[in-house]
């Protein structure tokens, strides 16, 4: 780097170098996703022959039709939507219930209660002891096992708490208190409405976490009809097995089935990844702000 500055690289030259680096990185990140998208609407034989590097070949939406007509994938999709909605409401509620009281500087015992939560970030019971208590409380095979045991996200709680402490104007709260509002009313009427930037980030974080989670379901939900989408995808993407229902409905024999299995692979990747990839850009502008409020400790 020192050499460059001695050479007296002009700003224009540096601009071009930076531009090249960034565009190269954009291609590296985006291309694999683009490739899957193109492959999902192409003939799989052409994909594996290397004919779809840039554009689809033999365009068809058969893969997508197959994804949505496959009963296990369809159930998985519905399950994932259900888990994501309920889980997000639950998690964000828990965040607010925890973050607001702990943002009160005059709350007796605030330090100890914070510590009570923070310890769980660094030390835990581990897989089996947690599994045993989930079992003892009767949550195995119950949807709520996905939400309750991990329901209080301490890292996110700290971000929200710091946001409350640093980004809500004190004058506003004091004015409300002079008008006779107690803390709960301040919470409902001032803090919640003013916390939309951080709330939207937390909603997206929660949605992404629940939409993408499969490990919790793998352990706690043994029934296949309760499996969320990623877990159903495991059979298709990782184990590479076609479902029995497809095998029975295909008339063209093994080759045709094989072709359909490959199409389903690409289409199901798109179907599983697309919702979150469409949502996050809407709150992207809040990411940095929210992270910063959390990083600069209050």
């Amino acid at each position: 780097m020192k050499k460059n500055s001695k050479l007296g690289l002009s700003d224009k030259m540096s601009d071009i170098i930076l531009l090249v680096i960034i565009i190269a990185l954009m291609i590296i990140i985006a291309y694999p996703l683009y490739y899957v998208l193109v492959a999902s609407v192409s003939n799989p034989y052409d994909v594996y022959a290397g004919k779809t590097f840039l554009l689809p070949s033999d365009f068809s939406l058969k893969g997508y039709k197959a994804v949505f007509s496959d009963p296990s994938l369809y159930t998985g999709y519905i399950n994932s939507i259900k888990y994501t909605i309920i889980g997000t409401i639950f998690s964000v509620t828990m965040l607010y219930l925890t973050a607001y009281p702990l943002a009160q500087r005059d709350l007796p015992g605030r330090k100890y209660i914070s510590l009570f939560f923070i310890i769980t970030m660094y030390f835990g019971g581990g897989l089996i002891p947690t599994y045993l208590i989930v079992k003892d409380t009767g949550l195995i095979g119950n949807m709520w096992s996905l939400f309750i045991p991990g329901g209080v996200s301490v890292a996110n709680m700290i971000l929200v708490r710091n946001y409350f402490e640093t980004s809500i104007p004190h004058e506003l709260i004091e004015a409300a208190q002079i008008d006779g509002c107690d803390k709960l009313k301040v919470f409902l009427k001032i803090v919640i409405p003013l916390s939309m930037p951080i709330m939207s980030v937390m909603v997206v974080f929660s949605m992404v976490a629940y939409w993408n989670d499969w490990f919790t379901a793998l352990i706690y939900l043994p029934k296949p009809e309760m499996a969320p989408l990623p877990l159903v995808l495991r059979n298709i993407l990782i184990k590479s097995s076609a479902s029995a229902t497809q095998a029975s409905t295909i008339s063209g024999g093994y080759a045709e089935l094989n072709k359909l299995t490959e199409m389903i692979k690409f289409a199901s990747i798109v179907v599983a990844a697309a919702p979150m990839l469409i949502i996050y850009p809407f709150v992207q502008k809040y990411f940095e702000k929210g992270m910063m409020a959390g990083a600069v400790k209050g």
């Binding site: 828990m94 009281p101 009160q104 019971g125 002891p129």
Partner: peptide, 27 residues
């Protein structure tokens, strides 16, 4: 004066106790 705040904290504290601290005891 802060009873409402403790009430808000009640559920998260109970959940954390059951699903984080009891497993530590289970170690």
């Amino acid at each position: 004066a802060n009873w409402q705040m403790y009430l808000l904290l009640l559920i998260p504290v109970v959940i954390t106790f059951i699903y984080k601290y009891i497993p530590m005891y289970g170690i």
